[in-house]
Design a protein around this nucleic acid. Structure first.
Length: 469
RNA sequence: GUCCCCAUCGUCUAGCCUGGUCCAGGACACCGGCCUUUCACGCCGGCGACACCGGUUCAAAUCCGGUUGGGGACGCCA
């Protein structure tokens, strides 16, 4: 069987957003599934808007997601001679021609057509004029006037366009730079791309590209148009939907495996399975089970997947992932990794993102004061002072690295002997140690904090409570 | 406006191709309960959908047609 070659071809006019990552992932998965080649190509023919920093950002986002490429990144801006060669061929074969219609006029005609209720397409007025190349000429493709252009889409099935719907598109701008539809065809041909997998917003481009393939006598790849990812408002994802760049999700404390899993499951399924390892995705992923209808991006589900992977992650690895967030949100730099691992283990089932986890970890690194208002007023009361003092005395008697077992004994004993319910003992102590009413288990906390800090915090809480009325 | 794509719970989806096993299954979210030193986790349960109309058929979520609705595209952007 022929080698499968797919490609992802972002334009560096912005950062990689979720929609782009979705397309990139599907292409990557197909390449990996068939043990083929995944090509990365930068479509930077729009000189006005393309920026180098976006190229870097896109590459960084791809790396973070683990979407490694086998070829490239190619840049269209570096392939000028190749495009020129193909332009010359089309011109020589009479499949293309020069046009010197001023852009302003073209725009006016489009507007007029739209106002009339017609399809705003080029009227072909330069088609038979036999114009020579000039300073303001573009090269246009001589699109067939009649007939039907159709293909069997790898996802949607048969799709057909009446050639009358098409017009003579520009292949090369006046400045010599190729346009999208042309550059893509030349690139996909010369790079040997076998499966063109892209968003369904490209369906209208496909017949335009097909006629060029035909004029060039090139073999056709498989075209597959995947469902678009929509925002909550059911419109195509765009900047106005908020922070949607892949790197923004990294900043927000999402794990790449959660994002990959989420993106894979949007528009594709494998029975009832929701959680997929990278290996499973590669093994199961084919175009066969890609959905035909667009999907709405749901952050709640992404969050669920993220918490799942947070829970699954081995503590040392989790510690490494959490460390940068500790610095960012708490200002804690270069913490002891073994300590962070212990901390993270107590938080992994509680936090949905690394940012949240860092916030929850605060008391492990910093004094819990000021206490949460409500928590302190309710639990650090005068009546609780004797109990807290007694707890401190017993704590003091424990051998230094205090074990959780010893702690458990201490508190159950204390509760029994003072005739209190466990929670009436635990909550005041919890506030003393963490400043809050919600936290990981007391024994874990205290054992991680260590004897000295635990005792200090108890003493501070007693002071605070004694000062109240 | 024209062309194209799409249509199962609020959301992601299974089932549809190869009609009966589907008074439609799973997941997220939501609600209730259990577990419990708090909060989570986990477990159990609940709510909740085949857009509509017509046709084919003994039988339609599944096949066909139409309607409606949603989306996308109509650049010397990609």
């Amino acid at each position: 069987m022929k080698e499968v070659r797919t490609r992802f071809s972002p334009s560096p006019t912005g950062s990689l957003h979720l929609g782009g990552a979705h397309t990139a992932l599907f292409n990557w998965l197909i390449a990996r599934h068939f043990e083929g080649v995944f090509i990365l190509r930068i479509e930077d023919t729009d000189r006005e808007r393309s920026r180098e920093e976006f190229v870097e950002e896109i590459l960084a986002a791809m790396r973070w997601l683990g979407l490694d490429w086998d070829e490239g990144p190619y840049r269209q801006s570096e392939r000028g001679p190749i495009y020129q060669d193909y332009i010359d061929r089309l011109l020589a074969g009479g499949a293309a021609y020069y046009c010197n219609c001023p852009p302003g006029e073209l725009e006016a005609r489009r507007q007029a057509a739209l106002a009339r209720g017609d399809k705003p397409k080029y009227d072909g007025r330069c088609r038979e004029r036999g114009l020579a190349r000039g300073p303001d000429t573009v090269v246009r493709f001589k699109t067939p006037l009649t007939g039907v252009t159709h293909w069997r889409d790898g996802i949607k099935g048969p799709i057909a366009f009446d050639n009358q719907e098409l017009d003579d598109l520009v292949l090369q701008r006046a400045d010599g730079v190729p346009t999208y539809n042309f550059a893509v065809v030349v690139d996909d041909i010369t790079m040997g791309v076998t499966q063109v997998i892209r968003g369904e917003d490209h369906i209208p481009n496909t017949p335009r590209q097909l006629v060029i393939y035909r004029a060039l006598g090139a073999e056709l790849p498989l075209f597959a148009h995947m469902p678009l990812m929509l925002g909550k408002d059911r419109a195509k994802l765009s900047k106005r939907h908020g922070a949607l760049s892949v790197l923004a999700y990294r900043e927000q404390g999402f794990l790449p495996q959660a994002l990959v899993n989420y993106l894979a499951r949007l528009g594709w399924s494998h029975g009832d399975q929701e959680i997929f390892s990278r290996e499973e995705l590669i093994e199961y992923f084919t175009l066969e089970h890609v959905t035909t209808s667009p999907g709405v991006f749901d952050e709640e589900k992404l969050l669920w997947l993220n918490s799942h992977y947070l829970k699954e992650m081995p503590p040392p690895e989790l510690a490494r992932a959490l460390t940068p967030f500790l610095a960012k949100t708490l200002g804690v730099t270069d913490p002891d990794q073994a300590y962070v691992a212990k901390v993270a283990a107590t938080l992994s089932a509680r936090a949905k993102t690394l940012v949240e986890m860092a916030q929850m970890a605060r008391f492990y690194f910093q004094d819990p004061r000021p206490y949460d208002d409500k928590a302190a007023t309710k639990f650090l009361t005068r009546e609780n002072v004797p109990m807290l003092q007694e707890a401190s005395r017993r704590l003091e008697a424990l051998p230094d690295p205090i074990s959780q077992e010893a702690l458990a004994q201490l508190f159950t004993g204390l509760a029994a002997e003072t005739g209190r319910k466990m929670k009436d003992v635990a909550q005041p102590v919890r506030v003393a140690l963490t400043g809050k009413t919600a936290s990981p288990g007391l024994y874990e906390i205290s054992s991680i904090l260590g004897k000295a800090k635990t005792l200090l915090r108890m003493a501070n809480a007693v002071k605070w409570a004694a000062g109240t009325k």
